[in-house]
Each structure stands twice: as structure tokens, then as C-alpha cells.
Design a protein around this nucleic acid. Structure first.
Lengths: 197, 197, 197, 197
DNA sequence: CATGAATGAGTCTTCATTCAT
DNA sequence: AATGAATGAAGACTCATTCAT
């Protein structure tokens, strides 16, 4: 009767819970989502939930870590690219695409409001850090290649790129006439304007 | 006689509570702030709180209405200005100045994540509406005057200005190296780039 | 400027509060009525309320005492009557008449639910006592005069009269088709049947 | 497997809570009873309470529904009886017996004073309705059989039976010398007198 | 492993009462 | 006397988390 643990099944169920949480957090916010609601959405019992995640917060951290990892992977895959500016623009497209999952925008809003929780702030800081660390070298290389302005530091330019990107995501979340797909070209144009010499 | 109400004193205490709430919401978010915490911060008893605001949510709505009114006033005061682009830039400066209260950025984050509360969503929608209605005519006039590009509609340009502005506010809230004052000139530059023909 | 207390004015205002309380208690019950609601109904400030009654409960006790006193007076006025059974029937009519104030029925229900408050229970017990002490001698006299049955004690007959009376009041409070006026004759008939030999 | 629910155990605990509530409501009234008091009496935590009943009011409604159901069952079981008056008298005995649980009388008082709660009023109205619908046909049949007076309508006679019954219950609650058992015979006699031609 | 019953700390809110004006 | 602002104890209810089955 050796009831062996099936890691694949375990991971699959973990993802079901994460997916359910994404839906709930996006719809009602982090604090506004009860673990009971997540369980309902995931089709599991409350006891099961805590088999997979020791706390509600740990689930949020897992989701964040998941996103951070994805960002890391995305930049790792471009390690050998040649055209710096093209990588930057590709990241914009990638982000716009991710936002085509309509839950993402709500999730971003929801997460940004979890304040005063050191672990969450740390996870968000790490996420930002990874993104900056992924982006800044390409910006610096683009500066060296004469593709972008040099009157601002690479760090500042990166920060302003993220300003535009975060503003874009927030707008998509709030303004139903402002869609990620419809504005993708303008997004590229705006970023080029911000970076150009 | 026996007119006990001193309207000035009443209003003053109202503002003390609003100020305390601003501090708390900015630090721990709306849901993460208990009315007890606000009372502690304001130095009042729990009963007094509900003497001034019937619910926790009504306090939030009062703050939002306050901000909306300020925006309305700001644009009303510029009704007779001549240079459209100058008004737009002045609004950027005004916003950056408001953000010099370090709590404002956190408050914006906190509020933007109150989801599922129809009254709050309505108040936020109104706030956005008032801002758009204030800004868009000036952008349109700037287009007519040949000061800004015309390949995008005034509405789209307004939306993109708000993208930059909201992104800017979010960044200030998150990145301690990125201050409203230090980046004010770059903010102006970025917006000019986005708008220029 | 000798601001002398005007006892008449004081008493008048006391009665205004009592009347307001009667209305409120009848409509929403004792616990369901806030002192604020009574003040609103009476057109006074909350501070004034506590000038006239030290506690909410003391107001209830005052009303009860008022009713008890009225009962006492009613029987005192009949002290020299000749026909015992006529007095009993007259009391039934008197009660039915009091119930034509539609608030009375609700008030009776409201008061009967204030349980566990020793002072209120004592006041209610006294009220019952005064009524029993008023009624029982007449019943006993009616027995002696051969007007009513003697197979039950005067005490028991009195208790059963109150059973009918209280049941009558409760029914009036609950059944809108069952009015004090419309059923007055039947009330007399029923009591006669209960008492007759 | 993993079917944790033991319906019997669940129902048993539900009854423990209902029993505790009956005790508390009878002693201190509905409004005067805190959910905490019920939990203490039932030996459960506050969370458990709301696991079984979503609100304090729903518990009251459950108890009322329980009583209504019992009344319905009682009359359903007599559907084929022959002697109408005997059924009526049997119901009196049945009620007197129920009142031998000394809490019942207090509970009736407590409940009759829950005012302004539409759901409770509806439940009480239904309870009354079921009782009337159970009783009135038997009274009408007794009239047809010449067992009771016909100068009043069956509806009025039913109302007056309930007057006596409610008055009886109220008296039992208030007068410690007046017990349900001791007065059972007189109750029968009084009702016969009210109904007789 | 999976479940859901049980828990109690914590939340928002109400309200009788006090007191300075 | 009259007022209403201020208070804090108490109440109903929520929810993340634990644990026996």
C-alpha cells in the first residue's frame, strides 16, 4: 500500500491553488480575499490549502517568486542577443503580452497594496531588483552603442523605463478603453522617445 | 444660546482624523489599517471617530473627495491662462510638489487597491474624470496651437500623460533613491518628449 | 435675573420625554430604542435627557410607576362602589379603552421582554401586585354576594381574569383584525363565562 | 473516503447550541443575550457558534421554525380523529405539557418582543398561521357537530382560544404560584366555558 | 493525503453616559 | 438649564490557522 508521493501531482495541485489565488486576488485584493474563497475557487478543502502553503502570505510570496523567476529566465534567455535596444523593446512587448491575461492588472494593484509586511516588501524589492538588473545592462550597452541618450545615467534611464511601464500597467487596470493590445505600438513609441538622444 | 458647536473646532478635529488616517493608510494600506490604529494616531477614542465619520469607508471617501475638489480648484484657477502647454507643465510641477509629502505616494498605492467597494470605485472614477476633464482641453488647445503632436487624439495624449504621472508617483513610493524633487526636471523633459511633434 | 426653577415646566418636559419614549419603545422595543432616538422624538438634546432621567432604565421605571399609580388611583376611586361584579367589568372596559392608544400594546410587549433587570422585574411585580390587590377584594366580595362561582379561590379567579386580560392585550398587539373596540363585548362575555357559577 | 462529516454529531451539536440559546433567551431575553453568553452556556468557542448559525438571528429563526414544524406535525397526526372538541382539548393539554419546561414561558416572552426584525415577524406570523390553520377546522367541525357555540365565527372562537392560551403561558412565566400542571384542569374548564353554547 | 469542524484573536461599529461650555 | 462633543465598554461577526479523523 506504499502511498508514494507523486511530485508531479503535487506540483499540479500547487499550480491550481496559485491560479485560483491569482483570480481571487485580482478580483478582490489580497486582504479582501479569504483563504476560504481561494479554496472554493480551487475546489479544495481548507485543510488541503494549508498542506500546500503554510500561510496565506506564503502563497502570495510563492506567486511573487514565480514571477521573479520568470523575469530572470526571460533575461537569461537573451544573454547572447546582439542589439541592446531590441532587447529592451522586446521586454516591453513581453510585458504587454503578459498583461493580456486580464487578471494580471488587478493582481498588480492588489499586491502593491500589501504594505507593512516585511516579507512581502522584500519579495517586491527583489522582483524590482531582478528587473532592474536585467534591464540596466542592456540600457548601458545601448548607451555605449550610441542607441540612446547619455545625458542621464543608465540607472536613471532604467528607472524611467519602469515609470512608463508601471504607469502603463496601472492604466490598463483602471481604464477599460486603454487596452494593452491597442496601445502596444504607442508604448514602443513612448519608450523610444524617452530614451532617444 | 447653548449653541455648543464651534464649527472651526469641529473642522479642525476632522482634519486631525483625516491626517492620522492619511498616515496610517500610507503606512499599512486601507485594509491593513484598523480604526483603532487611526484613533491611536489621532489621539481620540473610538467613539469620537464614529462621531465624525459614520464608517471607516466614509473617511476614505472624504479624503478622496477632498483631493478631487483640490484638483477641480486647481484647474478652475487656470481657466484664463494663455499658454496651454505651460498649464500642463505647471500641473506636473503641482503634482510633484504634492508628492513631497512622503505619505501621499503610499496613500495612492493604498487607495488604488481598494477593490470591490462600489462607492470607492465611483469616487476614484470621479477623481480620474475630473483630472481628465481638467487636462484634456489644455492638450487639445496645445494641439490646435501647434505646441504638441497631432498624430494621437487629445484623449490618448491625456491618457499617456497620466501614465507617466502615475508611474512617476508609484516609483516615488517604491524607490527611495527616486525622489519627487530630484526628478522634477526629468519629469518635465519626459512629458515634453511624449507630447512633442 | 433669578432663574427660578419652574416646576410646572419641568414636569411638562418630563412628560414630553415619557411620551416620546412610549412611542419609541412601542415601535422598536426597549433594547431596540436608543436614547438618541428618544431625544430625537422628544426634540431635545442628549444632555437634556440625562437632566431629567439619570439612566435609560430609570425612564422605563418612571413609566411603569406612572401606570401603577394610575391603576391604584382607578381602584381608589371605586372604593365606595356597591356592585362588585360591575367594578370588575368596568375595569375590563377601562383596560380596553387604554388599549385604544395603539402604542400601548407594543409597549406592553416591549416591557415584558426586559428580563434579568432586577429593578424592572420588581416594578413589574409591583404593578401586578397592585392590580391583583385592586381586583381580588372585588372578586371576593362578588363571591360573597353570590355573583360568581366559589369553586375556585378568589386568588385563582383573579389570576384567571388576568390570564384573559393579558391574552387579550397580547392578541390586540399581534392580530390586526382583532381590535380592542371590536372585541370589547366579547371580552365582557368571556370574563362573565369564566366567573359565572 | 475522507468524509469527515458525521451528520449525527453535527445535528447533536446544533441541538446543544439551540438548547443553550433557549436557556439564555428565556433568562435574559433575545436582545439581552449576547452570542458570547450562548457560547459559554453551550461550552463552545465563538467561532464554532458562527460555524453552525450564520447570525444570532438565524439561530432564533431556527428555533422558531422548529416549533412551527412541531405544531404542524402535531395536527397532522390528528388528521383522522373523530371528536373535534377532544382534539381541541388535547391541544391544550399538549401546550400545558410543553410549558412544563420552565424555560418555554420565558422564551415565549422573549421572542414576542423582538420587534422591527422583518424575518422574525414573518416567522412568528407563520407560527401563528400554522396554529390557527390547525385549530380553526376543528373548531368549525365542533360547531357543525353542535359541540360549541355558533354565535361567534370559527375564526373568532379560534382567536379567543389563543387569547386564553397565550394569557395562560404569560401567567405561567410571571407568577410562580401559577404552574402549568396545577392549572391544567382549570385551563380545560375555562376553554370549555368560552366555547360552550 | 485530504478533509472540514473548531478555535479565538481581532474587526468595525453602537450606545449609554459624562462633562465643559 | 440646555446642549452636543467625547468616551470606552461591549456586541456581532470574520477569518487564518490547527488538528482529529
Amino acid at each position: 500500500m506504499a502511498r508514494t508521493i507523486d511530485p508531479a501531482k503535487h506540483e499540479a495541485r500547487r499550480l491550481v491553488i496559485i491560479d485560483a489565488a491569482l483570480t481571487c486576488f485580482a478580483a478582490t485584493g489580497y486582504a479582501g480575499t479569504s483563504t476560504a474563497a481561494i479554496c472554493r475557487q480551487a475546489g479544495i478543502g481548507s485543510g488541503t490549502f494549508f498542506h500546500y502553503f503554510p500561510t496565506k502570505q506564503s502563497l502570495l510570496l510563492a506567486i511573487l517568486a514565480y514571477g521573479t523567476e520568470e523575469t530572470r529566465d526571460w533575461f537569461a534567455a537573451r544573454a547572447d542577443d546582439e542589439d541592446p535596444l531590441a532587447v529592451v523593446v522586446a521586454y516591453l512587448d513581453h510585458t504587454a503580452e503578459e498583461m493580456s491575461d486580464p487578471r494580471m492588472a488587478g493582481f498588480v494593484r492588489a499586491v502593491s497594496a500589501v504594505m507593512g509586511e516585511p516579507d512581502v516588501e522584500a519579495a517586491l524589492a527583489l522582483d524590482t531588483r531582478v528587473l532592474e538588473d536585467g534591464l540596466e545592462p542592456w540600457i548601458a550597452r545601448a548607451q555605449a552603442a550610441g542607441q540612446v541618450r547619455t545625458d542621464l545615467s543608465a540607472r536613471d534611464l532604467t528607472a524611467w523605463m519602469l515609470v512608463v511601464l508601471d504607469g502603463f500597467l496601472g492604466r490598463v487596470a483602471v481604464d477599460t478603453d486603454f487596452t494593452a493590445e491597442g496601445q502596444r505600438d504607442t508604448l514602443r513609441d513612448v519608450v523610444r522617445r524617452v530614451l532617444s538622444r
